[in-house]
């Protein structure tokens, strides 16, 4: 088991992700957020466990389901919620939206093309290497993206150039409605790392402590300049591909089975068993974060819309 401070830090990250997303879902169903909403619940432990090792200046990239890694990394909650609502006070002044979040304060960016973040993540790693900085570039993607050419091209180039990159695959079993068994020729993407001569690890992504421990040597290795690695974490989408996903393709009982592995109660049990905190301590943390998230929603809802002139700004700098 990890130390008390680490366990409580992981707990805060998990609760921050889940609470923020529950609020985002509520605002979406009320019509305050336009477009799709791809929530991260059920994958929370993956980015919480990995990002606990990262510094704000470590470049981090993700995909269309990108709230989790940004929340785990400690991004600006208010600006993030305002961005989801398309407001002027948002991270990108309303130009990115929930799938294109850019928060330079924690070196974070995401985009909605599957597999596209992996090549991009090589760049900051290459820059860090050339600038002789000990940064680690982390990229989060799903098991669906591991069948894009960019996955293989990026693993190869990262390995070839010994770039400080951590590839983190959320194996949430489903690419929209296509199960992994229908998309992937091998049982585990972690095994694909061996094709590029780099370490590949498989971890229970429903267990924040396990993810934290599995990511530790991989992040340290990259930071020491010893090159990239691939971490695959099994997890699940508690809310389907996106909000209002009818989920007709799911086998009966699968969702319930995975919800039984929810990483939040699991970590609560671990914290209490270890004597790291009491129920009341955990309630206090949850309340504190709940209040913070409520404030972000109030901030976002009361924020102004971007002025029309902004539509044509920033095509170029």
């Amino acid at each position: 088991m990890v130390a008390k401070e680490v366990a409580l830090d992981l707990y805060r990250r998990l609760v921050r992700i889940r609470t923020f997303e529950e609020k985002a879902a509520e605002l979406w169903h009320q019509g305050h957020i336009s477009g799709e909403l791809h929530l991260y619940s059920g994958q929370d432990a993956v980015s919480a466990g990995v990002c606990a090792h990262l510094r704000p200046e470590d470049p981090t990239a993700a995909d269309h389901r990108g709230h989790g890694p940004l929340l785990a990394k400690g991004g600006d909650l208010k600006k993030m919620m305002a961005e989801l609502l398309g407001r002027k006070t948002g991270l990108c002044q309303g130009k990115g939206g929930h799938m294109h979040l850019f928060d330079p304060s924690v070196s974070y960016g995401c985009g909605s093309i599957i597999g596209a973040a992996m090549p991009l993540a090589l760049g900051p790693a290459l820059a860090a290497k050339m600038q002789k900085k000990d940064l680690v570039s982390t990229v989060f993607f799903g098991e669906g993206a591991a069948n894009q050419g960019t996955f293989h091209e990026s693993l190869n180039l990262a390995a070839l150039w010994k770039l400080p990159v951590l590839f983190v695959c959320h194996d949430n079993r489903w690419a929209v409605s296509v199960p992994k068994a229908q998309s992937t020729a091998v049982p585990w993407n972690a095994d694909r790392a061996s094709a590029y001569g780099i370490p590949g690890a498989l971890v229970d992504g429903m267990d924040a402590v396990a993810v934290y421990e599995a990511a530790a040597p991989l992040v340290q290795r990259a930071r020491r300049g010893e090159g990239p690695s691939l971490l695959e974490a099994t997890c699940y989408r508690f809310r389907g591909h996106f909000e209002t996903d009818p989920l007709v393709y799911l086998p009966a009982g699968e969702m319930e089975e995975w919800k039984g592995k929810d990483p939040i109660p699991k970590l609560e049990r671990q914290i209490i068993e270890q004597g790291y905190g009491t129920d009341q301590d955990l309630v206090r943390i949850r309340e504190e974060i709940r209040n913070q998230v409520e404030q972000t929603a109030e901030f976002a809802l009361s924020s102004p819309w971007p002025e029309p002139e902004l539509a044509t700004q920033h095509v170029f700098v």
Binding site: P59, A61, A116, M118, P119, L120, A121, L122, G123, P124, A125, L126, A127, A128, M130, Q131, S137, G149, T150, E153, S154, N156, L157
Partner: peptide, 15 residues
């Protein structure tokens, strides 16, 4: 895809 993406990433990282 990999090296052009890497170039973009390097460009927004100070190169």
């Amino acid at each position: 895809s990999a090296f052009i993406g890497a170039a973009t990433g390097a460009a927004y990282s100070g190169m």
